[in-house]
Design a protein around this nucleic acid. Sequence first.
DNA 1: CTGTTAGCGCATTCAT
DNA 2: ATGAATGCGCTAACAG
Lengths: 333, 333
Amino acid sequence: MTTIRDVARHASVAPMTVSRVINQPETVAPETRRRVELSIEALHYVPNLLGQGLRFKRTMVIALVVSDISNPFAIKQILGASNAARDQGFNVIFAHTSASPTEELAQLRSLVERRVDGVVLSPVLNTPDTTDFLQKQGLPVTIMDYPMPENDVDTVRCDSISAARGLTEHLLALGHSRIAMISGPESIVTARERADGYAKAMRASKLEPLVVFSDYSPEGGYRVAHELLSASTRPTGLVTANNFIALGAGRAAIDLGLTIPDDLSIATFDSLSPDSVLDPFFTGVVQPVEAIASRATTMLIERIRGEYTGAGRDVVLPSTLEIHSSTASAPPL
Amino acid sequence: MTTIRDVARHASVAPMTVSRVINQPETVAPETRRRVELSIEALHYVPNLLGQGLRFKRTMVIALVVSDISNPFAIKQILGASNAARDQGFNVIFAHTSASPTEELAQLRSLVERRVDGVVLSPVLNTPDTTDFLQKQGLPVTIMDYPMPENDVDTVRCDSISAARGLTEHLLALGHSRIAMISGPESIVTARERADGYAKAMRASKLEPLVVFSDYSPEGGYRVAHELLSASTRPTGLVTANNFIALGAGRAAIDLGLTIPDDLSIATFDSLSPDSVLDPFFTGVVQPVEAIASRATTMLIERIRGEYTGAGRDVVLPSTLEIHSSTASAPPL
DNA sequence: CTGTTAGCGCATTCAT
DNA sequence: ATGAATGCGCTAACAG
């Protein structure tokens, strides 16, 4: 592969001159510049950013680490982050951790090895160690989606608890009283927070909460929903902690001969966009995922540039409740 | 950030010894090794792969470039490629081109600048220039999804034409005779090939093909389908060139008061997995996307390692036709 | 078994 | 306006 020296030789100048043509063209005499440009063209020279990175001690690359890339969620995070980064002249490299803490650490290490300038992380758990690991390296970090009480770090997220309340209150307002919640793994903060918000809303209406922790998958949702809906006094309303659970629950209802929303209303977190599902289209909490990623990226770059050096900021963006065809008034009991 | 020299100083050895502890531990005396390992631990040393890459002239990174990351398709490509790469000790970095040839070239250039060891590319168009660009850099490339008649390059794909025939013949076998096809942009090979396969099947049954080229989006599908289905003698069967078009077409049918599959059968390429849609679930051609990406990655790594140096290989993997609830016997005319 | 020298590609600094 | 020397972090080749 051609180097800056090959170009220099071809154009009969010093390597330094070639470097200048690339980085500060105005400091080079027009005819020299032209000659160098022709040589670059002729030799198909492409600068080696490994060399640059070594020299500058910065790579102009930031990493976006998400846990589950198969969630449509992740796509929006990727779009939000890469657009924001591009605007600031940074490249983004993505990594996904398959929701495994071990894999997460391995990925982060690999990113540090490649000397990314910073990391936007949607962590598997909100334990302090991953953030610690990065900060010990002196790497700027921004955390998405979770509060990180034990770390001094920038976070960007929605308020899960109040969103879960809103979701539950929507069902209560429709006259439902037997409302169960299917949440994600109890080890994950958002799963706990979403369950908490639901429970708060239920208690505020003097109703007994019923939470089942499962996992964030259609299979988990199906299994739990099937069980809940087979009970003698089955719920008429279901709050689910993400779209995958909702899909599984929806299928379980259909398999049991129940109609949505006539027999069962489902309200979920992370409702899918209308492009992905025809019918029923879930009522749910929609988080501004792209905006979160975009904001997180901007804040990260501020840190990288040294434009902000203070304490960790906790930015909470509002989520919205979108009402669609999966919820309706409670059936008579 | 700590360097190999910091560690060396801390452990009172030469930098080279530290390097050996990391890369060939067995060549270092156990007690020296132990001392170095402690220093690595104490200083949180993480090797700088920029330095390594410069030295080795290889980065152990390959790039996966896809055009549209919001297609569920892309996720499977990412999973297939990253698993295959990990098995061989390579990291993968993803780039997406938003289906824009300009953006594609920009991304590829940026990847070359970062000296990836090779590229797995699902190109926007099957014009020779992008492949040329990479090969001129001496970079190994594997192309997914498209035949590249003008390049001497490895390709891995399915046979679009025969798959489109199969899709059409399925509808013909159900008794449909008024079958239209909505394809993607005519500038894209697969869109043309899929249309060709459909047309062949129609002509083989002495029927007049009706192809409309649109774009690979729900909006495009909606618009075209709405028009086709509003005609006085509307089609009873629709072949669509991808899942997005199918979704749009499905919504158009519903908006026009048509029932799927009673009034209209839809058969599509790139059928979604059952996890994503409840009802109707599209009959369609399923490509082994993950296997394609995996195979492409393996072949790329063979080239990188110099294990294969011959002419471009064209691997064609079989696709399957999965029959679901979006197709049924033709209604009486 | 361990250390020294040198160079991968690049740009900063200082000289011309 | 251009060039030469130097060092970013790393390791192959050689020396001890």
